Amino acid sequence: MQQNRRRDRRPVRRAGANCEPVPAAPVVEGADVVLVGFFSGKQKDFGALMDAAAGELARRGARVVGRVVQRRGVSAGGAARMALPYSSRTLLSYGKVRETAALCARTRAEAAVFAWPLTDRQRRVLTRMLGVPAVSLEPDADESA
Rank of each mutant, 00 (worst) to 15 (best):
D140Q: 09
D140C: 14
A24V: 08
P21D: 05
A25M: 08
R60A: 07
M50Y: 01
L137W: 02
K42Y: 02
E138S: 12
R106W: 04
A58Q: 14
R5E: 05
A112Q: 06
P133S: 08
M50C: 01
V12G: 12
T119H: 08
K42Q: 06
P26K: 12
V65Y: 13
S144C: 13
V12R: 09
A79R: 14
A141K: 13
P133H: 01
R81W: 15
A102M: 09
F38P: 00
A102V: 04
N4P: 10
D140V: 01
A79P: 06
S144E: 13
L91E: 05
R7E: 12
V68R: 09
A31V: 13
Q3F: 15
D51T: 11
T107Q: 09
P133K: 00
A79K: 13
R98Q: 12
R81M: 11
R63I: 04
S136R: 05
Y94S: 09
K96L: 03
P23R: 09
T119I: 12
S88P: 02
E110I: 01
R14W: 05
C104N: 07
A101H: 13
R71Q: 02
V27R: 10
R59Y: 07
R124T: 13
A31N: 04
A134R: 03
Y86P: 08
P117L: 00
L57D: 10
S75Y: 03
G66V: 03
R59I: 14
R98A: 03
A58I: 04
S87G: 09
A17H: 15
S88T: 12
S87V: 15
Q70G: 02
A53Y: 01
R71H: 07
E143N: 05
Q70N: 08
R106I: 04
E138I: 07
L126D: 07
T119N: 12
A58H: 10
A17V: 05
A58T: 15
C19F: 10
K44C: 10
V97L: 05
L103Q: 10
V132W: 15
L84W: 02
D140P: 05
R60V: 02
D45L: 01
Y86F: 08
R98P: 10
A17N: 13
L91G: 06
A112G: 15
A141C: 02
K44R: 14
G16F: 07
L49K: 11
P133E: 07
A17Q: 12
G55V: 12
P21Y: 06
V22W: 05
K44H: 07
G78F: 02
G73I: 08
M129H: 14
A25V: 11
E56T: 14
A102H: 07
V132M: 01
L84S: 08
G131N: 09
V12L: 11
G77W: 15
A145I: 14
K44T: 07
V33M: 13
E20T: 14
R6C: 10
E99N: 09
A115F: 00
Y86S: 02
A52T: 08
F39D: 00
A105P: 11
G131K: 08
